[in-house]
Amino acid sequence: MNVIALILLGSVVVVPAVALWSLHWASRTGEFRLLNRAALLPFDDEEPVGQATDQILNRGGDRR
């Protein structure tokens, strides 16, 4: 079997298979159900929701 056929097979079979598997994994582990929780993942104790960060420009005399 030549290398091109191998690549085409890989593209047509393996890539969609990985996609389907990850969809299945995501639904099995609740990635599509616990959306509220997922939306909060960038935040943590140190940089919690409701608090802006990186406010360093144009602060007048405020800047230390």
Binding site: L35, N36, A38, A39, L40, E46, P48, G50, Q51
Partner: peptide, 26 residues
């Protein structure tokens, strides 16, 4: 150091949270 700096901020953040917020992320 980092802890002290954020404690002050968290106090303000607590005040800020008094306002009703929409159900964000959903």
């Amino acid at each position: 150091d980092r802890g002290e700096a954020t404690d002050v901020v968290q106090m303000h953040a607590a005040v800020q949270r008094e306002r009703p917020e929409p159900m964000e992320g959903s």
